[in-house]
Design a binder for these strands. Structure first.
Lengths: 145, 145
DNA sequence: TGCTAGAATGAGAATCGTTATCATTATGAC
DNA sequence: GTCATAATGATAACGATTCTCATTCTAGCA
């Protein structure tokens, strides 16, 4: 299906900076662990930001695509987002409070690539997430008993 | 909260074997890679099995809890299930056709435990999934060009 | 500075996967 | 067979996410 008319410029898919997106970025920057889209939306509204839910989803998606934000799929099927450094890495997430530690795993990278190669798979990506209970939550659990 | 009346037997939480569950198991046994609950439900119905969607979800959940079935969260937030061997392992899944290879990763297990320990996290579990394009799909993609 | 194309927005409807409800049915121990 | 109760299934409810579309805002340009 060819385009109906001729075109000249490649028309780079630009990305505009809006008040809402800046607020979203700021919210993410102030966050510790992963946040769900719903959660971020609620926080922005609570902070007086006038923003729609659809916009939050769209902006988040754009950020994930541009690589500025990491996205993980929680065990209940909800997506969670977090501002991320450029380098590839993984996460150790507290099951209870969401506190997150970024971990670099060069060993895992190599292992993943080798396994994929051995099986003839190409274009391989991997998802490695560790879940546990962080020291703070451990202490709280003990006191409760 | 003590039980209202005295009891004698520990009342093992039994699990009944029904026509629907057997059909579900059979369907899983005949499957190659991960299947979504919806997909399994459709297949059962297509095969003439009289079974409700809710039942599929319940049975699948029970199987996951009993450790007979593995569950992964696909990137679109849909849950996928697969009959599994008892030993702990991970998966290399084809992004296109879902073809799955089970992989054992003792190195990864150790790495995960050490990282968690180093950070003071306890009760750690991990999720490791590799995604790629399997040889078959690679060939098809090349022919299409 | 004002103008303008089109990117971005937002309210709400629509999807879609999953779970809860509850009356009915089937299982399996006796 | 009887019976307690686990399992079922039709359907409603739910929650996250995406779509729609009319309106607003951004940023490049005259």
């Amino acid at each position: 299906m060819p385009s109906p008319t001729s075109e000249s410029a490649p028309a780079a898919p630009r990305q505009r900076s809006t008040r809402q997106r800046r607020a979203l970025l700021a919210e993410l920057e102030a966050s510790e662990g992963f946040r769900s889209a719903q959660d971020i939306y609620a926080a922005l509204r609570a902070g007086g930001e006038k923003v729609g839910l659809a916009t939050v989803y769209r902006a988040l998606q754009a950020l994930v695509e541009s690589g500025e934000v990491d996205q993980v799929q929680s065990d209940v099927g909800e997506a969670a987002y977090r501002l991320c450094s450029r380098t590839h890495h993984h996460h150790l997430v507290c099951r209870q409070c969401g506190r997150t530690v970024e971990i670099a795993g060069p060993a895992v990278e190599k292992w993943a690539n080798r396994v994929a190669e051995d099986n003839g798979y190409e274009d391989v990506s991997h998802s490695v997430e560790l879940f546990g209970v962080c020291p703070v939550c451990q202490k709280q659990a003990r006191q409760r008993k």
